[in-house]
Amino acid sequence: MSLDKSDVEKIAHLARMALDESHIEAYVVDLGNILNLVEQLEAADTDAIEPMFHPLHMAQRLRGDEVSEADCREANQQVAPKVENGLYLVPKVIE
């Protein structure tokens, strides 16, 4: 499996991650090599095998629907890039 430049650009867009134009060729090569490694999986017969989503096959624990967390908004917002009146600020979305 190999990817071309437009594939890498499309994946980068899905990941919302800007790539430096001058580095894209290197990503094309590296990702192609990684996918070649991954393709070894095709040879494994997995027809009768269940996927393993959890190493201990553990079920998700449930808890009562009660308030368990304290209000940490102020502490958490101290590390935010931009806040105002307790709200996170981002560039205008709707003109």
Partner: peptide, 21 residues
């Protein structure tokens, strides 16, 4: 948006995400 690095002068939300990352 909530913590960590943020790029300079994002022109819109998508630009903020993409350049930050």
């Amino acid at each position: 948006v909530r913590f960590g690095y943020r790029c300079e002068d994002p022109k819109d939300l998508e630009d903020l995400y993409k350049r930050t990352r």
